[in-house]
Design a binder for these strands. Structure first.
Length: 273
DNA sequence: CGGTGGACCTGCTGGC
DNA sequence: TGCCAGCAGGTCCACC
């Protein structure tokens, strides 16, 4: 579900609704996420006020007064939504934040690949989740020059390069696929065989694709919604992802699928080289 | 260094 | 109709 655009859509949808509100109570229903929920640390958030919402890569940052941040990662199947305080608990609702004013923020995650933890805001960048995170794509620090530098001396397929969070943060399978399509680069091309001009093309493609996806409210394939339950529409615009056998929107050749590192890639064999 | 395969999980789909 | 294989937006690790 959630790559950078989905988390950014979520952040924007929740920011005005959460900023300034106080967490009245915290319920940990099942701590058994891949990274187990720390019941004690999370419960200590009761009484704290939310000051702002941030994002780093695919991590949502719920910043609290008094120098702590509640960090949420949605894994593959996580959802974070506001609901009426009286709404019954849903299946796979692992964590519930009850807010003043009668609403609750609930984290659901059927596959339990997600995470939710409290960290010191000042030390966030040194936290193990963030320490090795790469370029933040929409911050202005991603360009062809930076990608070329990161790729220097490396080998391996450009798709793996794009999806390596230690190099570029927030780009997952869907948007790596779409950015490569836009830049007309074959997903299996070695990063050692990409020139300056094509790095620039790729950097701007990543940025354009992510920004478009945010404008469209993210990609909803099965279940993504923003914090208010609104689905995205970028799935209507996907050029290659999930479109094996369909005509390439540029040249009409049939889109192909290949598997790289266990993940599906989709590409046009004619216009991606 | 890189690449693969598996692990962690549940749920949905499509083919038989 | 029911069952089963395959697949899914993410990370992390061991191993070659």
């Amino acid at each position: 579900m959630p790559e950078l655009p989905e988390i950014e859509v979520l952040r924007r949808s929740l920011e005005s609704r959460l900023a300034g509100r106080t967490i009245a109570a915290v319920e940990v229903h099942s701590p058994r996420l891949r990274e187990p929920l720390d019941r004690k640390r999370l419960s200590n958030l009761a009484g704290r006020r939310i000051s702002a919402l941030g994002r780093r890569g695919k991590y949502l940052l719920i910043e609290l007064e008094h120098a702590e941040t509640l960090v949420i990662h949605l894994g593959m199947s996580g959802r974070l939504t506001l609901a009426d305080a009286a709404a019954p608990r849903e299946a796979h609702e692992h964590l519930t934040l009850r807010l003043d004013g009668g609403e609750k923020l609930r984290l659901r995650d059927p596959r339990r690949f997600g995470a939710a933890f409290v960290a010191s805001t000042a030390r966030l960048a040194r936290d193990r989740h963030f320490r090795d995170l790469g370029l933040e794509p929409l911050s202005g620090e991603l360009d062809g020059e930076r990608l070329a530098v990161l790729a220097a001396g490396r080998r391996g397929p450009v798709k793996s390069f794009l999806m390596d969070g230690r190099l570029v943060a927030g780009v997952g399978n869907i948007y790596a696929t779409e950015a490569l399509f836009r830049a007309r680069i074959h997903p299996a091309r070695s990063v050692a065989r990409i020139g300056r001009d094509r790095w620039q093309e790729l950097a701007s493609s990543v940025i354009v694709v992510l920004e478009q996806a945010i404008v469209e409210g993210g990609t909803t394939i099965n279940d993504f919604t923003d914090g208010t339950g609104l689905a995205g529409e970028f799935q209507m615009v996907l050029a290659a992802y999930g479109r094996e056998g369909e005509a390439c929107p540029r040249c009409r050749a049939p889109i192909r699928r290949l598997v790289q590192a266990g993940r599906s890639s989709f590409y046009c064999p004619r216009c991606q080289r």
